[in-house]
Design a protein around this nucleic acid. Sequence first.
DNA 1: CAGTGGTCTAGACCACCGC
DNA 2: CGGTGGTCTAGACCACTGG
Lengths: 245, 245
Amino acid sequence: MLQATEAPTRGQSRYGWLAAALRSRILQGEWVPGEAIPPEAILAKSYGVALGTIRQALSLLVSEALLERRHGKGTFVTSGLGGASMMRFFRFRQGGEVQTTPDSRILSRKCRLAGLDEADALGLPAGASVIALERLRSIDARPCLLETLVLPLPMFEALAESDTAAWDDLLYPMYQRVCGVVIHHAQDQLSFGQLTQTQGRRLQLDKGHPCVRVQRRAFDLAGRCVELRSTLGDAFSFEYTAQVR
Amino acid sequence: MLQATEAPTRGQSRYGWLAAALRSRILQGEWVPGEAIPPEAILAKSYGVALGTIRQALSLLVSEALLERRHGKGTFVTSGLGGASMMRFFRFRQGGEVQTTPDSRILSRKCRLAGLDEADALGLPAGASVIALERLRSIDARPCLLETLVLPLPMFEALAESDTAAWDDLLYPMYQRVCGVVIHHAQDQLSFGQLTQTQGRRLQLDKGHPCVRVQRRAFDLAGRCVELRSTLGDAFSFEYTAQVR
DNA sequence: CAGTGGTCTAGACCACCGC
DNA sequence: CGGTGGTCTAGACCACTGG
């Protein structure tokens, strides 16, 4: 069928080439996130390879978290990160044990030119526009996290004018629903600092209070950085668990 | 050869059973860390299965980081964590960019009974003995990390009397060389706090200075917790990068 | 029940390593 | 060159899912 689109085999293995071919079809949106791709037997036939070879290619994409296998049902394009992943960094020692999703309130939204660092991180040309957001997250009406977000503008245009009061508490599912952007993975950089007076006021803490800063870069399926986020929280409410290897 | 030692196949897949069999042979020390296990063809023949099946079993153990494949050379038992893994949490902003391994000095060593929490974490019976260590790590004679370690005593007996001044800067390779203990993985819990007066004196910082605490549990190949470690460092020198998913 | 992914086989050939 | 792991095949059968 759609055999060798460019090079059937070069220095690469056949399953590597197949994985690249399928990756490209996924990224160009041939199947929407959450949808099943054709069964292995069909793929094997259409590419003219053995079942085991197609399975090896699919395994690659599964290990990249682009696909998910479900025994007896099919192989599905990933739906990306849930959105509650930030919360695993913070533990709030107040009262109940249950780790609920905090409420979210947008404090401000501005469209402006990207700074040099921002344009660089987001892979934008000089002079590109972005949406800049300030966001306060609370649990039981008690502020706990103060966030600054930067989103590239052609891509997130739909968020530039919609009513921020109606936004979801979890942004990532909303990115997908409203803008078609799937957050695939992210990289967080943790550091320690002290609150400015303004930050302290918003978090109901004193100026100079110790805080944790989580600087996040979030990436879409294609590996492009599509969100910059900086989150501040009380250092004494912070707890994080990591696996080493 | 050494076919079904117990149950050739139950609710498990054949490669799952083979993996368990090989895992057990590795854990009981049939091959020392760094040594090659028999080639796939030999294993397949001796277990009376196809090559692909043994390969699937080995892949399981590779994904558990018990084995490493080296193309053209063989399949090797892992040598465990290097030991510099703690340093990825801390960045020292002083002078040079190079991330060197800090010097290490043992401040104290005591053998005592394990506390309740310690015995629980280490899987020891009540009333068991441990080695308790205090350790100061420095870069260019400047103290940067203050550590407390707890090691279970039958296992680390060789460290109870040897000259601490002669110990390596990296403990994990020494554990393996001296005690035959391989550190396979670890779990770190990060939190923030303030230095006590004593801690501050050792780190040449003020009492109450903001600090990061990394509480580590380290595990051997068999998955037993064999080291408890608590590391304190200046919060302002702390920086950590994590992949989300 | 039909359709899907998961397991297993027996064998061929390739790619890398070190002597 | 021989020995190792890596790729690929063609096909059989098993296990899970859902109508």
